[in-house]
């Protein structure tokens, strides 16, 4: 009797519905969502004395996970808080211009990810003959 073929999660295979590209895409979207929330938090606290800005480098975390071969599915992103950064006299570490720019950048990042996900869906639907 033939042994059933086992396949690792991160093995590239066009036949798997949830291959590593799809899982990385999902993890990146999670990361971008978290970053969006943190940047919004920074903007909401722009007038809070002593507030230190928060951010998350989900690109680096994802790169590290892919380099070490661990699945992006279980990857959890850790927000970082800047220390001793004051750009205003009241000790607030938030520069609204920088935050707005980062927010715009992150929005485009997220939209690009959604676009890729949409295209992948379209490819699958075409393959299945839905369209």
């Amino acid at each position: 009797m033939e042994e059933p073929r086992r396949r690792a999660r991160n093995e590239p295979d066009s036949m798997t519905l949830f291959d590593s590209t799809q899982l990385s895409l999902e993890a990146a979207m999670r990361g971008a969502t978290l970053r969006q929330t943190l940047l919004t938090d920074n903007l909401a606290n722009v007038n809070t004395p002593g507030y230190q800005r928060k951010d998350v480098d989900f690109h680096a975390a994802l790169r590290a996970a892919e380099a070490s071969g661990s699945s992006p599915e279980t990857l959890s992103f850790q927000p970082t808080t800047a220390s001793d950064r004051a750009v205003r006299a009241d000790g607030s570490g938030v520069d609204p211009d920088q935050e707005s720019a980062a927010l715009a950048e992150n929005s485009l990042d997220y939209e690009a990810l959604v676009q890729v996900a949409e295209t992948r869906n379209a490819i699958l639907q075409t393959a299945m003959g839905v369209r």
């Binding site: 978290l34 929330t37 943190l38 919004t40 938090d41 909401a44 606290n45 007038n47 809070t48 928060k54 998350v56 959890s76 992103f77 850790q78 927000p79």
Partner: peptide, 10 residues
């Protein structure tokens, strides 16, 4: 319970 600490606002 597991995931990263979220943001709470102001």
């Amino acid at each position: 319970a597991g995931a990263a600490q979220a943001a709470g606002g102001v």
